[in-house]
Amino acid sequence: MNRVVAVVFALLSIGVLYATTTFRATLIIDAYLGAAFFPRAIAALMLGFAVVLWFMEPRVQSETERIKDCESESERRSLRTDIVTPIYTTILLIAYSLSLPYLGFSLATSLAFITLLALLGSRVWWHYLFSIVFSVVLFYVFYDLFRVRLPRGVLF
């Protein structure tokens, strides 16, 4: 697992290093460090630590194992457990955010909340009722009380 992490961070830092070479000069000239210095320094350090992580893996693994004791069991189990719900939730949330400007906050949130509850396997009827009340109340609290212009949608 650690080696995967090391590779991901190494790739990220290489990408950043490459991107900094495409930085163009702007109207304002920074005669000393320039816009690319800081990202480059960070990326270089990141690459270094990623390499260390790659090679340290066996030792690190044993260290964590010793410290974690009982905690590690539940963590390890959760590594394998159902990653499906978070994935579906992510898709749901993206669809929700895209529909917000059209459906308006109350409707979109009610629908998304109900879908989420179904996704999580809730069988309690008042949970569903609550989600609608929650969405509507939240909208009015923010829109009228805090004057936050939540999307109202095209319908209302």
Binding site: L92, A95, S99, Y102, L103, L111, T115, A118, G153, V154
Partner: peptide, 21 residues
Amino acid sequence: KRLVSVLVGILLVTALLHAGG
């Protein structure tokens, strides 16, 4: 199944409202 149907529903309504707004 429920998720899919709701998503389709959201998309449909979105498209309709977009066209009519």
